[in-house]
Structure formats: C-alpha cells, structure tokens
Simulated assay, not measured.
Amino acid sequence: METINTTIAISPAARPSMASAADDGVDVVCHEGSLPAAGKEAIDQVYAHLYCSPHYFEAEAAYADASLYVASRDGVPVAALPYKHDATEVVVVSEYLTLSDAELSRFATHMFERYPSVRRIRLPKVTAPLETVAFPCHATVSGEDMVVDLPPSVKDYETAVGKNMRRNIKRYTSALQKAFPSYRYELYLEQEIDAGDLTDIIALSCMRMQSKNIVPRFTETEIDWIVDFARKRGIVGVARIDGKVAAGAIGFRIGDNYFMHVIAHDPRFNDYSLGILCYYHTICEGIARGARRFHLLQGRYGYKYRLLAKRVDVKHADIYRNRLQFLAAMHEVARKEWQGRAWLLKQWLLHDVERLEGPGYRLLAGLVQRLRRAKRAKGLAGGDD
C-alpha cells in the first residue's frame, strides 16, 4: 500500500516579518470585502486552474463578499488569494491553488498581523509541500488532480503513450467504423460549439450516473453556465453515430491549461471504449493549440495513467498562529487526520489495488468489485420499489 502522506509541523522557523516581504521586492495589497476585476484576472494568471477561477460555476457563490490578498513583484502578481474571515479564522475560498511554502508563509504572516484575533488559516484544497511553512500546520490529502504534462507536438504525445495505446486507439476506431459506418468524431472550439451537443453529452453523463445509483449533479443553472462558458473558452469533442451524439467530452481552457469537465458515452457502446477515444482526441487537440497541461478530473483510473496522467495530491491544510493554538485544536487535528487516512484508504481500495501484482491483491480487488456490484444492485432494486 502506498504511503499515506500527512503533514504536522510544530517547530516553525523564524516568522518572516512584513519588512522582509518588502525587502525581497514583494508588495502586498488586500482588497477588503471585494474582488476587483483585476484581482480575478490575477487569480487566473497566477494559478491557471479552472477550479480556483472566479469564472467557475461553483466558485461564483464562494467569492461573493470575499476579500482578496495580492502579492506582487515588480507589478506582476505572484500570489492572489481570495479569503473570508471571522473573529478567529481566515478561510481561503479558492481551491486547487498551487503555492510554495514561502508564499504560504508570507500570506499567513500578513493575515495574522492584519487580524490579531485570528487563530487559524484554513485552505480546503491546496497543492503545496507544507514542509517549511513558518507556522505550525496540519495537512491531510483530501483530493487529487490527474494531470497530463503535454509535449510540444501531437506526434511526440503519440510516441510517448506507447505502441499499445496507439494500437488500441486504432483498433477501437476501426471496430467502430466497421460496426457503425456513420461513426464520426468531431472537435469544436468556443463559438463553433452547439448548445444541443452539450445538453446531449450532459444527458449521457446523467444516464451513466443513474446506472451506478448516483444522483446526477447537474442543475439547470449549472447547465446554463456550461453552455455559456463553453462558447467562451470551451473545447468539445463529439462522437456521432447515425447523426446522434453517442459520446462526448466537454473541456475548458484557463491560460495554457485545459480541463476535462464532463465526459460521457452511451452505454450501448461500452465495448468500443468511446470514453478513451474522447479523452485521447481532445488531449491531442489541446496539444495542437499549444496547451501545456491537460487535467483529467479526479479519479485515479488506470486509463488515465495510460494517457500519461500523473496524480497530484490536493491537501486540506490548517495553519495556526502558534504552538498553543495548534495544541488547543488537537481534537480537531485528530479528527481530520482520521478522515484523511480513511479517504486515502478508500481511494487505494477502489482504484489502486487492482493494479498491484500478487494473488492477495487480486483477491482483495475481486472482493471490492463484488461489493461495489452488490451495492449498486441493491440501490437500483430499492429505486424500483
């Protein structure tokens, strides 16, 4: 089993002062209770991640009435953190931020000096080492980001995925064309994207979720946002058979990063790996358009590794003003530690154990699969009552 990574730091280095921030050429500004347009652009500029972008559907409500911390060097933002606070706590509302320990230390210093009664800073989802932060902190892995670092050309990517993947892509495509001569895969960008294709892909995703006894997450408001944002920054792949949408992928661009947001296929075509074809062709289009990274949603599935995705751990982090505040919160630290380890164990059982060699692992993987099928069947049977 993989090592379960947690971070508990209770011997901080000397706290940086606000003077030290100025000494290294970094200027810090806080916009209290507001998120100016320039601040929104700074967030995208620094982090280039959909799920911390103010343009993201789920982020819009979180950013209402948020304050904004901006650290800049020579007028160029190096950190832009929206946050909310009460008397005792600062909460960073952006998620999937990538930060160095030095920038986290600078931010924490500023927050603790700005708000003397604040005892803790909470970052629900952050990518950071959290090894040399200048305050006591506790972190647990709470999510993941499956990221493909893209080569400069499609040819380089085809070579990198290996001959087995290339052979499979050709085999899947050939089988589809033979069984369904009308099969076509088409890619659309921004203004070329048709709203009907998007709603058809979302409908397939809902069908897939319901088949697994999962309540679909899409609301009417979110669907409207997907349609609107896709016309501005979208990349959409559509597989058609007999002129109808059989599968599709909906992605978005932030800076030079692309993000897969919805991917789905009609279960009638399960034998043709339409999902992998959607991933592969959409990634290739991103490379052709100069993307540096393609993010493939959460979920450490084997096919994502075969597409060259690497897992990036996303952590929940709490930073405390001093050792006394850290020790006073030890009961909460213990609870979050337990939750983090339980989450990691669940992900290992669901996704990782089946890739390990050995009869014991195969037996465990088979048991997990049987339990999942039984749970799904029970849920579907319950829904029929």
Rank of each mutant, 00 (worst) to 15 (best):
A87S: 12
A42H: 01
Q191R: 14
K346Q: 12
H331C: 02
H31N: 10
A61S: 12
Y183L: 13
E192G: 11
F112Q: 04
A64T: 13
Y185D: 02
A342M: 14
V154L: 05
T282K: 06
T282M: 02
L344P: 03
Y305T: 07
L364G: 10
Q191W: 04
E357H: 13
V70K: 00
I287G: 04
L97S: 04
M330N: 12
V46Q: 06
D384H: 11
M165R: 13
V236N: 03
A239K: 06
I276L: 14
P82E: 08
P82D: 11
A37L: 14
I263V: 15
F180L: 08
G360W: 09
A42C: 11
V148S: 03
F252T: 06
Y83H: 12
A71K: 00
G383P: 04
A71C: 10
I226M: 13
W348M: 05
V314G: 10
T88L: 10
L363M: 12
L130W: 00
D318S: 13
V147S: 05
V91G: 04
G340Q: 01
K304V: 06
L344M: 12
A59R: 15
P82F: 04
I254C: 02
S34G: 08
A329P: 07
I223N: 01
A365S: 12
W225E: 06
G237D: 05
E144S: 05
V92T: 07
E220H: 08
I4D: 04
A264K: 06
R355D: 14
A247H: 13
W338N: 11
P124S: 04
L187T: 13
G275M: 03
A317V: 04
Y303A: 11
